[in-house]
Nucleic acid binder design. Structure first.
Lengths: 231, 231
DNA sequence: CCATTAATTTCGTGG
DNA sequence: CCACGAAGTTAATGG
């Protein structure tokens, strides 16, 4: 990894055209050839970049560019497309290279898939007497996260989101519409389950007769831990 | 901006829990307090990060951590939520600080809004004799990108995308369904316009009786230049 | 390898 | 300030 802090301007052409006026920025050149141009604020997204696979060519500025104060021109060309990033370097304030090695990568926990697994294992969170039919119950318009039966034998369709917003309720509504056409399943009740349910989503769900269930991730994980001790 | 290259591990808790095992990484601390942890590959997304507004606290490792080789612990706490990123620094291979100043920001060109403006100005690309009714024609389910009339006086609804995919055709289908209920407008013909149209989207459009129009950005811009010379 | 969907998405725009 | 949609989205997953 090479780190360069320099006054520079940049031009990108590819899926769009974009230009960065002259300013001081961090330029990161990664081991795989990818390049990031970062400013000293904003979020994690660079001002401009080139994704791998790509290769960088360095050349001297022409007379006109040199006149403008350009000390070097870096052209980063994507290997499989016409995407190209051209950086004009002026003053270089810092330049260092570092051997980082391969990263073992991020280990995640608490995403939607995990919530689904845990809710399936703790299906009585839907209410006493509920039983799991199956996870990822297939329908013509896609799989329903969880299909269950309640104590009275009625069918329950569950849509799980990490954060419950309106589009999740819409999704569940479409599933319910379809499932309720199946005489073997109908009537099917809907449950919208999420770690956090936005007020608007809650209102829409209520309007559609869909129950809301807030999932307490830590509590569910705690139960999982207890379960795992039994084995 | 502070640049640190160090062997480190990290732990994030907030909207999810995530862990980074010990490895050598780039740590960027921006002027607004935000922190990025980058590996030497992948795309522009960091392995882990904290978005602004946030603040970092540095503390000495406890005896146990020191035993494991930890030289310092950085805790980055988000100002408005419970999001927290904790970094355990082991060997520090590089540490430098740089004053970058405020960035003038990226200037973009060739996005959907621009395509819409240009197509409105060159409405005959839809076919000879077409005239513009209006851009962003409002409907109950959202604005139609362009509404026009063809040579025969028939209504034409245009959906514009940079890249034409299936969901764009679905969107236009919903608009057409709604517009065709209005006796003042019906029958309304649909045109799906994009710089690039995916095969699946083209097939779906054809199936729905929607015409496809590939927009040549450079050619359209060329015409725009000619137009602007007239004024 | 392609299509689909989520994301600690981020980023803009318009109400 | 919030909801909505696009992004040079990126990243993971399933077929």
């Amino acid at each position: 990894m090479r780190l360069v802090v320099a006054r520079c301007s940049a031009h990108y052409t590819g899926r769009l055209s974009a230009h960065l006026p002259l300013a001081t920025r961090l330029i990161v050149v990664k081991a795989d050839g990818s390049v990031l141009l970062h400013s000293d604020g904003g979020s994690y997204k660079p001002l401009n970049w080139m994704s791998p696979p790509c290769a960088m060519a360095v050349r001297e500025p022409d007379a006109q560019a040199a006149e403008r104060g350009v000390s070097a021109v870096w052209t980063v060309q994507h290997a499989k497309s016409d995407d190209r990033l051209e950086i004009e370097l002026h003053d270089v304030l810092h330049d260092s290279a570092h051997d980082l090695g391969v990263d073992p990568g991020l280990i995640k926990d608490g995403v939607e898939a995990h919530l689904q697994t845990m809710l399936a294992a703790q299906i009585e969170l839907l209410g006493a007497g509920h039983s799991l039919v199956r996870r990822e119950f297939p329908t013509a318009i896609g799989p329903v996260d969880i299909l269950a039966r309640d104590a009275a034998g009625g069918t329950v369709a569950v849509e799980i989101k990490r954060r419950g917003e309106i589009d999740g309720v819409e999704q569940l509504t479409r599933y319910l519409e379809l499932l309720n056409r199946d005489p073997h399943l109908a009537p099917v009740r809907g449950v919208f389950a999420a770690q956090e349910i936005k007020p608007q989503a809650r209102i829409l769900a209520k309007d559609r007769g869909i129950d809301c269930l807030v999932l307490d991730y830590d509590a569910m994980r705690g139960v999982d831990d207890v379960d795992s001790r039994l084995f």
